[in-house]
Design a protein around this nucleic acid. Structure first.
Lengths: 217, 217
DNA sequence: AGTAGGATACTCGATTCAGAGTACCTTATT
DNA sequence: AATAAGGTACTCTGAATCGAGTATCCTACT
């Protein structure tokens, strides 16, 4: 219930897996890996057993029995409770209906951009553009594999989505690199100045100006 | 150096702040908040002092002296070392030049979509589209504020970028909702079937098929 | 049949984190 | 001058996390 408990996406993945049938932790991990969920969701298998324990504490799953193969440790099989079914449904509903603020690393990079000299930035953005093109090519071939494997689109909408986002990013990177390269970006004079002469008169001009109160509705 | 140390973006934000001049931890936090960095970077001020301590241990910053106002605890002022300057430069360079895999929450949501009934999904996507429109309107007004405040574009490229991504998301959400609503998405029959009759013959048909080996180059 | 090499199935501990908590200061009020 | 309200400057704690470690199993080769 507490939103704090919804921080770990592995927990949701587990609940949804157990929706199908009771499993033991390792089987859940294997299933998720087989279905390539780790490509769309951040899953720390390191905390697998801790997350199962926390779900049990919260009454969302119950141990159903154990099973043993060879002399490996016993495997506890867990099943979803009614509360678990409700939680999985509510969580997923919220995830689909309500946008949250994500923090893509590149957004952070952009916000610190003035700390690097403009010429360096142009070539670094060029590197990124190339890498993004390679990644997009890979994604397209993955999609072809999916299509050939007769897996209906329903099961790979997330791959399409990721592709759209990366395409937008590539377009933005190209446009920005071109603008900086052409010296057309607003603020370029100051940017050049502080990197040519770090102690020059321009150094402090903007040091405090990006203080804008309010912003947004 | 170890990539593990580059996990926390607050550390980079601190290094870049100290690039300007030595400060005490609380002053760094205040500066970052004033510059709205928390909107583009995930900054946990809860671990502020821990991160300063870790940067000092790694030799990237050094305490320069202390200062005291009233009977508040002493404030330690930290300065960047040469190693710290190098680390900040290298880290930022990597961030700009090399795309990493982010995990937007909505991508996770999409990958679990078949767990909800299709009709529900259509209306949830509709909700999301509305919320995204509101958010985009807010972002545009924030940008206008920036522009009026005479803050050069150089300092808000990250806001533009975020806007482009959200626009792509909105377009995708609308298209997907329309396709599902029209019953045109590949896999719809199966999707309808398992939600109309969870134990029916369709239930297991795809339960294992999204196992595709390889994928990507 | 014995065993080397690699994959599989967990376990453990040091580190890091988020959020709640607390003490202090400043300002406003009477 | 006393006190209340609100913000500032930290501190603490339980929980989460990552990576490294260990034990077991399977396969192939001699």
């Amino acid at each position: 219930m507490s939103t704090r408990n919804r921080a770990n996406p592995l927990a949701l993945a587990i609940l949804i897996c157990l929706y199908e049938r009771p499993m033991h932790p390792y089987e859940v991990a294997t299933t998720l890996r087989q279905r390539h969920k780790h490509e769309s969701v951040r899953l720390n298998y390191g905390s697998l057993y801790a997350v199962f324990a926390s779900l049990e504490r919260r009454g969302l799953i119950v141990p159903q029995g154990t099973q043993r193969s060879g002399r490996l440790p016993e495997r506890t099989i867990y099943a979803l409770t009614d509360a678990g079914r409700v939680e999985a449904h509510d969580w997923l509903t919220e995830l689909v209906s309500t946008p949250v603020k994500d923090y893509p690393e590149f957004e952070a990079a952009l916000s610190f951009l003035p700390a690097l000299p403009p010429d360096d930035v142009v070539s670094l953005l060029g590197e990124r553009a190339v890498a993004l093109e390679v990644e997009l090519a890979e994604m397209r071939s993955t999609r072809e594999l999916f299509a050939k494997g007769d897996l209906p689109r329903l099961f790979w909408v997330e791959v399409e989505f990721r592709e759209r986002l990366r395409e937008s990013e590539l377009a933005y990177v190209r446009a920005l690199a071109a603008e900086i390269g052409a010296g057309e970006l607003e603020g370029m004079q100051w940017w050049r100045a502080i990197h040519d002469d770090p102690d020059g008169p321009a150094a402090s001009q903007y040091s405090n100006i990006d203080v804008i109160e309010g912003g947004g509705a």
